[in-house]
């Protein structure tokens, strides 16, 4: 296998950024208490390869706000016209330091937004996705929120990655998954190595088999949904941290009254406003209705419609929930009914 030394990582990132591509990497946020987030990297900046990020890597593909197009009202020959200004497609980024739980969530996002995987053609997403390079850090340790072993091959999953880096003493063993990955390990930043791949982490597990049907059976049991969501405060954190959640809201913002931009921003089904209708009626008035949707969409509707579970067991929603909600406990309670 090939090996790359820890201190060669900045040079690898420089190489990747060479063609003008944006390289996203985990970084410790300045002036914060160890908040680690994916962010565009520039030469000279440190990269964090040991810690988990508090939000997933999805912002590299689905930015929190994306400008869809600009528009303006024009007067021409006594008539008013609307002029559209389309967005230039962005170049595909590089995602360095994703974890298996970030990389495998791409399958779910692709199933919706990427025509090559049977999804709709979402120009923004598809543009960034088509030439995306994903370099994943394999997990040799995990914490008590991780539960990716519940899905597929768990920490050994290679889906969604181009290259996997296994941490060993002073560096990483590099295992290519795709042609793009094979090309990278041919760089002379990498050397041959006889080291053995390290043992991977073994995480907590939850049983999701049968959940798809079980959820439908229990849909009307509102007391159950009230019980499992009683701690929840109905914020947007869990959806925004999740590598697989992808809902958005579309809106126009004007600058003056002649021109503006149409944007989309992340949205969360845990917000009251998410299903609020213009009439004032809200089909999901209670937190329980909204939390039920969170579970249903992840483990029942999306698997039924698009063949993918919308959870990779990354544990981010558990680590960061201000109210201490643990989605695994919810799944267990539902499964035990």
């Amino acid at each position: 296998m090939r090996f790359i030394a820890e201190d060669a990582i900045p040079r690898l990132l420089e190489h990747l950024a060479g063609g003008g591509r944006t390289v996203w990497a985990p970084r410790v946020v300045r002036d914060s208490v160890n908040t680690v987030l994916f962010a565009p990297w520039s030469a000279g900046e440190p990269v964090e390869t040991g810690a988990y990020t508090h939000l997933s890597a999805k912002a590299a593909l689905l930015p929190p706000t994306e400008r869809l197009f600009g528009f303006g009202y024009l007067q021409a020959a006594g008539e008013e016209r609307i002029e559209l200004e389309p967005e230039e497609p962005e170049e595909s980024p590089v995602l360095f330091g994703a974890r298996v739980c970030d990389a495998r969530a791409l399958a779910a996002l692709d199933a919706l937004f990427f025509p090559a995987s049977g999804g709709f053609n979402d120009p923004g997403y598809a543009g960034r996705r088509s030439g995306l390079t994903v370099i994943t850090l394999a997990c040799t340790t995990c914490d008590s929120a991780c539960f990716c072993s519940s899905f597929g091959k768990g920490p050994a999953e290679t889906d969604g990655s181009d290259l996997i880096l296994y941490p060993v003493a002073n560096g990483f063993l590099a295992e290519p998954v795709t042609d793009a990955g094979s090309e990278l390990v041919r760089l002379d930043l990498f050397q041959d190595s006889r080291l053995e791949k390290p043992e991977l982490a073994v995480t907590a597990r939850v049983e999701t088999a049968g959940l798809r049907e079980k959820f439908i059976d229990l849909f009307s049991d509102i007391d159950l949904w009230r019980q499992v969501s009683e701690k929840c405060l109905s914020c947007g954190f869990c959806a925004y941290a999740c590598p697989a959640c992808h809902c958005f809201n579309i809106f126009d913002e004007m600058s003056g009254d002649r021109e503006g931009e149409r944007c989309r921003s992340w949205d969360s089904c845990m917000f009251y406003s998410y299903t609020l209708e213009t009439s004032g009626h809200n089909p999901r008035p209670e937190i329980a209705h909204r939390y039920r949707n969170r579970i249903g969409h992840k483990f029942s509707y999306f698997p039924a419609n698009r063949g993918e579970i919308l959870c990779t067991g990354c544990g981010r929603c558990i680590r960061g929930c201000p109210a201490g909600v643990d989605i695994r406990e919810v799944i267990r309670t539902v499964q035990e009914r």
Binding site: L233, C235, G236
Partner: peptide, 12 residues
């Protein structure tokens, strides 16, 4: 610049 407008601050 890193606020994601999750409104967890408000809900808590």
């Amino acid at each position: 610049s890193r606020c994601i407008r999750c409104y967890a601050c408000r809900e808590a």
